[in-house]
């Protein structure tokens, strides 16, 4: 079903692993489409309540595979047809997405990590906004997400200088949610994702939706939307369970609906 990635679901978590280790998991158009499809599948599956994107081998993702570039397509088309739809699919996914950055995340690989809701970063991983080093601009939503995560000045610095950012620096400027040692990697990743998968998934989706909406609305409009969002959350079974558990002084068992 997939050739450039692997996809499995375990304990409510969808594991999407970029699987071109000999090419440092560089993007091909096929990989763009397979990621898009896997995210769509996860979003539509009741079984999935959290998604992990990670890389096989020593890299997370090294960006576009320059040998896969189609000569008939200009770079604008490449973005419109391959990356844009993939990034849109990720942005419209209302389940929590974790980038498990196991190694280098360069170029569009950095963008992919930025589009996720969390970045768990291996101590040996690094980020590099490499675009400027070959005379291009950061793409695949990179500037959009990066400036929101680290602020305007830092986003410009990383984008204009194109220098490597280590895991600890990434933590310091707010890119990394958490830096994890190589020994603890598998265990902590699993624990983080499964904890998320046991939370009220619908509410998480609504929080993602309305936080994003807030960037495009006036306060007045936002407050109206927020009321809609809370109305929807108030209709979920998880809300009923959350209130019941609170009253009964026990731990809530959320089902994600």
């Amino acid at each position: 079903m997939y050739e450039t990635i692997t996809y499995r679901v375990e304990n409510g978590v969808a594991w999407l692993t970029l699987n071109r280790p000999d090419k440092l998991n560089a993007f091909t158009s096929q990989m763009n489409k397979e990621i898009q499809k896997a995210i769509k599948t996860s979003a539509g599956s009741d079984e999935v309540r959290a998604i992990i994107i990670t890389g096989e081998g020593r890299a997370f993702c090294s960006g576009q595979d320059l040998s896969d570039l189609d000569d008939s397509m200009n770079l604008g088309q490449l973005l419109r047809e391959n990356y844009g739809p993939m990034m849109q699919q990720i942005a419209s996914c209302e389940k929590p997405i974790i980038a498990a950055v196991n190694g280098v995340a360069a170029g569009a690989g950095f963008s992919l990590a930025l589009a996720c809701d969390f970045r768990l970063v291996s101590e040996k991983a690094s980020f590099i906004n490499a675009f400027v080093n070959i005379g291009l601009i950061p793409d695949s939503g990179n500037l959009y997400y990066l400036s929101r995560i680290v602020g305007h000045a830092k986003a410009l610095e990383l984008s204009l200088l194109g220098e490597k950012v280590t895991a600890s620096e990434a933590k310091h400027i707010g890119i990394a949610t958490k830096v994890i040692s190589v020994e603890a990697w598998d265990e902590e990743l699993k624990a983080f994702a499964e904890n998320l998968a046991n939370k009220p998934t619908k509410a998480i989706g609504l929080i993602k939706r309305y936080l994003e909406a807030s960037y495009h609305l006036s306060l007045e409009e936002y407050l109206k939307e927020e009321a809609e969002g809370q109305r929807i959350a108030g209709l979920t079974m998880d809300y009923a369970e959350g209130v019941a558990a609170f009253t009964e002084k026990r731990k809530a068992q959320f089902i994600g609906k």
Partner: peptide, 9 residues
Amino acid sequence: IVAPELLME
């Protein structure tokens, strides 16, 4: 425009 969940309401 309304949230999909609340269209009928």
